[in-house]
């Protein structure tokens, strides 16, 4: 264990009453402005609990690279500017159906831990009443050939990998759906570092 002089503050639940402070700005659901580079998608995140009930009071945050694989952050040292028509951060509260609908672009590939590239993915944080410490997961895109070579997916037991996939709508290919099962059968894979 490394030395440290202070200890990180404990997390506590967001509770049920955060909306008037954190999610009044619904513009945070539109990450891609018109003119954003790349494949524009509508991404519907559905949150359900251990009894398959929709969670209507969750907050979903997304963090992703732009379509070229550039994060809008100083730690991303790639010598190019992030797409100015794109914001890598999205934040919405779920509605009565437990859904949060984001407008974004499919992210590009970013550097992986092994020197290679990761498959396109969106980082997700879930907060809710009953969630004392926020949960991290990732959204990958079903059918992307890069998924087979992704070193993070490779660490997930094969039978659980599908919980990390968003699927396109059969009729509207630009509409993708991702389900977050907080608990129980088909439980989404959550990560820790």
């Amino acid at each position: 264990m490394s030395e440290r002089s202070l200890i990180a503050s404990a997390s506590q639940t967001i509770g049920p009453f955060y909306a008037f402070a954190l999610t009044t700005n619904t513009a945070l659901g539109v990450m891609a402005q018109s003119g954003a580079i790349g494949e524009r998608i509508e991404l519907v995140v559905h949150v359900v609990d251990g009894e398959s009930q929709s969670v209507a009071d969750a907050m979903v945050e997304l963090w992703q690279a732009d379509a070229s694989g550039k994060y809008q952050h100083p730690e991303d040292m790639q010598a190019r500017n992030p797409d100015p028509a794109f914001s890598g951060f999205g934040r919405l509260g779920t509605n009565a159906e437990g859904e949060a609908a984001f407008t974004t672009v499919k992210p590009g590939r970013v550097a992986g831990p092994d020197g290679g590239l990761q498959a396109p993915h969106i980082n997700v944080i879930v907060f809710a009443r009953g969630v004392l410490l926020h949960l991290y997961t990732r959204i990958y895109f079903a059918g992307d050939p890069a998924n087979k070579l992704d070193s993070v997916l490779a660490q997930v037991p094969e039978e659980r990998r599908s919980t990390l996939l968003a699927y396109p709508d059969r009729k509207r290919r630009e509409l993708w759906r991702f389900e977050i099962r907080l608990c129980g059968e088909g439980e989404t894979v959550f990560f820790d570092w």
């Binding site: 990761q118 009443r129 993070v152 907080l182 894979v189």
Partner: peptide, 24 residues
């Protein structure tokens, strides 16, 4: 409320990549 809203399976440890070392 924690009982139906938290995973029963252990979280999966993965390496810290550019995706986590950046952030909003």
């Amino acid at each position: 409320s924690t009982l139906l809203r938290n995973p029963r399976q252990p979280l999966i440890q993965i390496p810290q990549t550019l995706s986590e070392l950046t952030g909003p």
